[in-house]
Design a protein around this nucleic acid. Structure first.
Length: 433
RNA sequence: GGAACGGUGGCAGAGUGGACGAAUGCACCCGCCUUGAAAGCGGGCGGCCGAAAGGCUCGGGGGUUCGAAUCCCUCCCGUUCCGCCA
């Protein structure tokens, strides 16, 4: 959620900031929220002053009773009872308006960072690093991974569909080993700075709301309705909420965590796209890195985390590039965001293999993750501040898997395994004849 | 799933209808004392909303009452025992 106080003190600033997303509906929501908030504040003070009177009268009842003055006590009680009725009515109206405002605030997106590039859609995303299009591929690399992998017996999409329906994949033999090796590799490469976590893969509604996936994107997630649980679409979801409702000490920050988890996505809006191979599926494995930080620590962490995602692609020897996400293409919770893409010569596509984002305090406000600041002498400051959250995929398995199969396909149809993965491959350095 | 007992501030732990936003201890902060520290003494010390007055907050929600940490209902969580189970 964006800061309600900022909305009150600088509504125009917020309006200008959100307008950069190029979504007129968003600004309309904002204006609606401003109006509701004004009503809410009027109700608050009306309700509070009624409560203050009831409380004061109740105190008087006590005092009178202690003094043995029953008549006065009864009179005050009667008066208090009448005010109490009015208070209840006012409180009910407050609750109604308050919930209305909350629901609205939950769907208002984050304000883009001033340095985020302006743009209307993904075609405006500027290139930060790497080639527009890499060159020098041989004919034997121009084979889609699903053909190569099926021929090698390491991808069995047909049987995956038999088991679970469309948009599920299954790797076998060296292909399954490769998928797992990629995870192990990504975890090991980040274990210098990130605590490894194995979080739950099913979460409460409140957990999925904290990251911004609910209420707006309910259609994109798998729900287990009978038990009121959701399948996580990314490890970002459980990791972000690990410290929800807690007050951390600034000396603990930044907190860095990483996790290997399955990720479940309904892909409701993508029906019919990328239906072949491993480019898009309902379930895939991913290693995620995440940090909780102060506002001051966040920019450097963002750079570092993009660098970590890039370093993995370099170590694997895959052609990659980094693009920054423009204001019109950003996700709801994003403040600033970068994608790492690798090139897959077989299907001739840039594949998004990592998305690293800074969320400002947007998620922390939803999840209520705060910290106690300290001054120069180390004395705790009064009050608390919201942390900033950042996260990114270190490595999303299927697309990297696909890119490896295509980039390292040999003339004879076999696939060479990048040397960085050898320690995790049980001695397999090449798949195929 | 069944039963019993619990859930109070950073922690421990009192509090069974009114003077309780909450004793006491520990931790923490400021000051005095000290060469420095400890001890001692004095003071302070949760969070949220609000410009303030004031309001809210004793696991969540609802109820009884003029008034609820305290009584009632319900849900959640924890501990122990039983059942079941990988």
């Amino acid at each position: 959620m964006i800061d309600l106080r900022l909305l009150r003190t600088d509504p125009d600033g917020v309006r200008v900031g959100l307008a950069r997303r190029h979504k007129p509906a968003v600004v309309a929501l904002l204006d609606e929220a401003i109006g509701i908030d004004e009503r809410l504040r009027e109700l608050t003070s009306a309700r509070d002053s009624l409560r203050a009177e009831v409380n004061e009268l109740s105190r008087q009842v006590g005092t009178h009773k202690r003094n043995g003055d029953e008549d006065q006590a009864a009179a005050a009680a009667e008066q208090s009872r009448q005010l109490g009725d009015a208070e209840r009515e006012m409180a009910a109206r407050f609750d109604e308006v308050s919930e209305e405002l909350r629901q609205l605030m939950l769907v208002i997106p984050n304000i883009p960072h001033p340095d985020a590039p302006d743009g209307a859609s993904d075609t405006d995303n500027p290139l930060c690093e790497g080639p527009v299009m890499p060159e020098g591929f041989a004919e034997h690399q121009r084979v889609p991974h699903w053909e190569t992998a099926t021929a090698l017996g390491i991808l069995d999409s047909e049987r995956a569909t038999k088991i679970s329906g469309a948009m599920f994949t299954m790797q076998r033999g060296a292909g399954a080993t490769l998928a797992r090796a990629l995870c192990q590799f990504a975890l090991d490469r980040n274990s210098d700075a990130f605590e490894e976590i194995r979080p739950p893969s099913l979460v409460l509604t409140s957990t999925l709301t904290a990251t911004g996936h609910l209420p707006k994107f309910a259609d994109d997630a798998f729900a287990i309705e009978r038990d009121d649980l959701w399948c996580i679409p990314t490890a970002e979801v459980p990791l972000t909420s690990i410290y929800s409702g807690e007050v951390l000490d600034v000396t603990e920050l930044p907190i860095r965590m990483m996790a290997f988890t399955p990720s479940f996505r309904r892909e409701a809006g993508s029906a019919g796209r990328d239906t072949r191979g491993m480019l898009r599926s309902h379930e895939f494995d991913k290693v995620e890195i995440l940090a909780l930080a102060t506002a001051e620590q966040a920019p450097d962490l963002l750079t570092e985390m993009v660098g970590r995602a890039v370093a993995l692609m370099q170590a694997l020897g895959l052609p990659y590039r980094v693009i920054e996400i423009c204001t019109g293409d950003m996700g709801q919770s994003h403040h600033r965001s970068f994608d790492v893409e690798v090139y897959a010569p077989g299907c001739d596509q840039w594949l998004e293999v990592s998305s690293v984002s800074w969320f400002g305090d947007y998620q922390a406000r939803r999840a209520n993750i705060r910290y106690k600041a300290r001054d120069e002498s180390g004395t705790p400051k009064k009050g608390t501040e919201l942390v900033h959250t950042l996260n990114g995929s270190a490595l999303a398995v299927p697309r990297v898997w696909a890119a490896i199969i295509e980039n390292f396909r040999q003339v004879d149809g076999s696939v060479r395994i990048p040397e960085a993965l050898w320690p995790y491959m049980r001695g397999i350095q090449q798949i195929g004849p």
